[in-house]
Design a protein around this nucleic acid. Structure first.
Lengths: 340, 340
DNA sequence: AAAACGCTTTTAAACGTTTTAGGTCGCCGC
DNA sequence: GCGGCGACCTAAAACGTTTAAAAGCGTTTT
């Protein structure tokens, strides 16, 4: 590979100064149109590559936005990310993706790397147990933060997420109105803000429906298909076996439905199951899954917009915003089997 | 936010030169242990943040590695990415993820951004129709490339992928040995190297089993669950309806199985279905999916290793490497129904 | 004739590191 | 008392941009 071409090479070849070249390449009105075209044509011709590190050293803007989530494999995040990417593309930012797997140390390293790279801002779904100080550290160093999907107590940065308690309430009430009275809650953990909200939503709905919210009908666990599948046995062994299960998310629900099917039971007939998120997969699951749309596209889009507006210096008006979830009734829920 | 702290701030406060600080922070043996500790302690105390842009401007090493794939939502890539990340982490590189959705223009922008950022190298699963010149452009500009999952004709960079023709042969032969003679091929496209290889593998297996490889038993399409689901109708309407389907990947296979289930058929009994990839999901699908492990973890790991060794200046010995796939027999395949 | 003006271009400093090529100092052996 | 050595430290240039300030220049105004 030949030595890298730089502004001064162009300047020299064309008999102008680097300042002119720099301005011309950025379409500044300060340089004459003919000069500009001559410079741009020549630059293209010799394959000049703009050096962002040098530029950003000078301007202290990098055009980079970090995005840190728990797990990029989770389709919920994948949908959020897709929306974020679309929006950041539009505003000319490059996005730098990483996952932290709920590992605080890994998250810290990720944020530090972003700081070192001079990222203009970061959108993060914080790991379990993230202290407010971690977020403040970023802000203090001039890297604005926007939170998605989860929140951190005691931090005053924009935060975009679905109204989990309300959403789970929709699913629970739907089951109650079908006639179920024994309803389990499967998957997830109380360690996240999301977790506490969802479980709370379930308990509130149960209580306000005059039903027991028995702690022994709660099965905690990871938030994957595999976890839902693995919970099947525990679910079937529950005391006064419930006739329905409110699942943490669609993945758990689909895993559970597969598990039930493997034991010869038909989800939606013998056992009703609800999911959460409304992944694109929910509709074609077997049976199609009753679930709650969690606004992932809206969350992603607004988060990106909130960050971009902070970058432009317009402090975002609303520090936190809740997206209202929507119930999607399909075939995984039905009336409880006769004779209970 | 206060002005950013830099080396010279530390140097000044401690009455040493920036050179000493720079060396000390990087644990150079050139500075006395006591000085080093004093500097490092002070740096930590005042919250110094290393400026990588400035450093890399000087060293022309960025520590960044770009990873460009078709679609991060696809769990196949997700598993490859996971392996890559693990490996790059180990070698101290930061990875910069992007997807191109098989859009050549988007891929070009992605590569250009990486070049501008001074990425040390890139691991890419090239978009459909990527010309060799695109890859060469990167190489020419000092950014080494490693290909994963797909390859580009006429390019001499390391390339890591599964042996698709062989793998699909395993699945097809498995069906033939169960007694199936009418076998469809569902999903994918001939536009990628992978596509051509898989279809070729199917045809070779059919022919060598003495069976017809009818072109009208091929249903092309996207490589998603939804596409598999949507192909159900077309599959059921195929002339001399096949008793089995070799699917492009697990996603298509699971979609098809769900589709078949929705029409009241039992996959694995009335219709045998094979997948490809052996995603973690395959095992808990309903029914558990017979599929072919595509070596995604191995592909990712070796790709990262190949790139790292190129970065270290040891040109990788083998330019292309094929991972040998493995058949995993589960319950989605069985003997054809009696009376055909 | 000088001043003012508009348009275009240039000069030169700055951004925060790394690294080369010394410099200083104390000590040793003579 | 000097040369040499080792250990530690530093001055200064370099990396490739951007940008504030200034300058050049041809025309017009005063």
């Amino acid at each position: 590979m030949a030595r890298k071409i730089k502004l001064s090479d162009i300047a020299e070849a064309l008999g102008v100064s680097t300042a002119t070249v720099s301005l011309a390449l950025r379409d500044s009105g300060l340089v004459a149109a003919t000069t500009r075209d001559r410079i741009k044509d020549f630059a293209r011709e010799i394959g000049y590559i703009y050096n962002r590190r040098a530029a950003s050293l000078r301007t202290s803007k990098s055009g980079l936005v970090g995005v840190l989530v728990q797990d990029i494999i989770n389709p919920f995040y994948a949908e959020v990310l897709h929306a974020i990417e679309l929006e950041l593309d539009r505003s000319g930012h490059t996005f730098l993706l990483s996952n932290h797997n709920d590992d605080l140390e890994k998250q810290r390293r990720g944020l530090e790397t972003l700081l070192q790279l001079g990222a203009d801002g970061v959108i993060i779904s914080p790991a379990i147990g993230t202290p407010a100080s971690e977020i403040e550290m970023c802000e203090k160093n001039g890297m604005p933060v926007v939170l998605v999907a989860r929140t951190v107590d005691g931090v005053k940065v924009p935060s975009l997420r679905g109204d989990d308690a309300f959403g789970i309430g929709l699913a629970t009430n739907h089951l109650i109105s079908l006639g179920h009275s024994r309803i389990a809650f499967i998957g997830g953990t109380d360690e996240t803000s999301t977790g506490r909200e969802r479980y709370r939503g379930y308990r509130v709905a149960m209580k306000s429906g005059g039903l027991p919210d028995r702690a022994d009908w709660r099965i905690e666990g990871p938030r994957t298909k595999r976890a839902g599948y693995d919970a099947t046995e525990a679910f079937l062994a529950l005391p006064d076996r419930p006739t329905a299960a409110v699942c943490w998310n669609d993945l758990v629900a689909i895993g559970l439905m597969n598990g039930l099917a493997h034991t010869g039971r038909t989800p939606g007939v013998e056992i009703s199951v609800t999911g959460y998120d409304d992944l694109s997969e929910a509709e074609i699951a077997m049976p199609p899954l009753t679930t709650v749309w969690n606004g992932q596209s809206v969350v992603g889009e607004r988060a990106a917009k909130a960050l971009v507006s902070r970058l432009r210096g317009l402090e975002s008006a609303k520090p936190a915003e809740m997206i209202r979830p929507v119930l999607r009734v399909r075939e995984s829920t039905g009336v409880p089997p006769a004779g209970l």
